[in-house]
Amino acid sequence: MKAVSTIEGRAIPLGLKNIDTDVIIPAHWLKTVSREGLGEGAFETIRATPGNPFDVEDFAQAPILIAGDNFGCGSSREHAAWAMLDMGLAAVIAPSFSDIFAGNAFKNGILAVELPQEHVDRLLEVAKEQPITIDLENQVVTTPFQDRFAFEIDPFRKRCLLEGLDEIGLTLGSESAITQHEQTRGGALPWLDKPQRREAA
């Protein structure tokens, strides 16, 4: 994973609630075997609507998206995160995220920043004219108007993002503990550890 520290730039003030992953990337884009090129299909239905914020020239290449409650609800498709990366997004700010999307975003180095609705509302206002800054190290979102909104982040995820850690590599460091667990449960719950396929009875 690429290390992430500070993200600064224009933010697309989308603001809608319950943006589901079918909206972020419709199913017909999921037939790919690659992670690349999905930006073209990102937010397809919203972008087809005249006057949508993605069409505003100032927001081309904007690294931040601001959305409403429950962003990323619905399917577990990581294609949603890949599509957002492909269109140049590095962070999303919203009052809440679905659990699976938040995980997928993190795995791809996209910062999912949770802030209370009133702070999100203020940022939606500021974003129309001005850039905003997300400082991961200090866990704060700032604006040119001296707004300072602190946010919480899981300490493990923060460390992985700041250091660009490979999570599988980290887990493989626990190899002996995993083997130990398998041996213990193989003794106590052998059918769980060694499933065998037989003809139905």
């Binding site: 995980g103 599988i168 887990t171 626990s174």
Partner: peptide, 22 residues
């Protein structure tokens, strides 16, 4: 529970996931 593709890879490689209890 459902997982994303990076987690699919993580489970394939390690048979575990890094999670916090809900």
């Amino acid at each position: 529970f459902g997982i994303g593709t990076s987690e699919v890879e993580h489970v394939l490689a390690t048979q575990t996931l890094q999670l916090r209890r809900s």
